[in-house]
C-alpha cells in the first residue's frame, strides 16, 4: 500500500496495491499468510521431517493455537505462545514487514519491536483451540501451485501485474 495517499492512485490501472513478499528462508516455516482474519502458517518440526505444526493467531482477539496437522495440540503451549508461533511471527515480519503484520493483527507494535517474540509479547493473547484442517488445507493448496504445468498461452491480464523491485 505504498502510494495509497497519492491522488492519482484511484485513476491508475497499474498501481502496486500489495508489496511483493520479501525473500526469506523457507526451510523452517514453509508457509505464512495473512488470511481469513488470521496470521497463520505451517512450521516444520525440528525433530521429525514428516511432521509439521499448524500455528495461527487471530486478528483483533489475539487468540492463538498450535497443533500438529492431525490436531494433536503442541506440547509447547503452556499458557504462552510456543516457539512455533514465535517462528511464525518472525517469518511473517520478514515476509510482510512489521507494519503490515501489526496492522493486520490490529496491534500497536510501538517502538523497539523487531522480532516475532517481541510482537507476541505486546499482545494480550490467550489460547483458544482451533481446527488445524482449514490452515493445513490452505497450505496444501499453496503447494499445489507448484504442480500446475507451465504454459505458453499469453496472459494479457498480467500486464496489470508488472514485476517490480529491481535492485532490492
Amino acid at each position: 500500500m505504498a502510494d495509497v495517499d497519492d491522488a492519482g492512485w484511484a485513476r491508475r490501472s497499474s498501481v502496486r496495491v500489495v508489496p511483493a513478499a520479501r525473500p526469506r528462508k523457507l526451510a523452517k516455516v514453509p508457509f505464512v499468510e495473512l488470511a481469513d482474519g488470521r496470521l497463520q502458517g505451517v512450521v516444520s518440526s525440528g525433530s521429525d521431517i514428516e511432521r509439521v505444526y499448524v500455528s495461527s493467531l487471530t486478528s483483533g482477539t489475539h487468540a492463538y493455537h498450535c497443533s500438529t496437522n492431525n490436531n494433536r495440540p503442541c506440547g509447547g503451549l503452556r499458557g504462552t505462545p510456543c516457539k512455533h508461533l514465535e517462528a511464525l511471527a518472525d517469518e511473517a515480519i520478514l515476509q510482510y514487514g512489521l507494519d503490515r503484520v501489526a496492522r493486520y493483527l490490529r496491534v500497536d507494535a510501538g517502538d523497539g519491536v523487531t522480532t516475532g517474540a517481541e510482537l507476541l509479547g505486546r499482545l494480550d493473547a490467550r489460547h483458544e483451540p482451533t481446527q488445524a484442517a482449514v490452515v493445513f488445507s490452505r497450505f496444501l493448496r499453496h503447494l499445489s501451485y507448484l504442480e500446475v504445468p507451465s504454459s505458453t498461452t499469453p496472459l494479457p491480464e498480467l500486464h496489470w501485474f508488472p514485476s517490480t523491485g529491481a535492485g532490492r
Binding site: 511483493a20 501451485y145 504454459s151 499469453p154 496472459l155
Partner: peptide
C-alpha cells in the same frame, strides 16, 4: 512477442522466477 509463464507462490520472488 512470445510469452511463457508458470504458476508460483508468493515466496518465490526475484531471480528464482527464472527457475520456474
Amino acid at each position: 512477442r512470445t510469452a511463457v509463464g508458470a504458476a508460483k507462490v508468493d515466496t518465490i520472488v526475484g531471480p528464482a522466477l527464472w527457475r520456474l
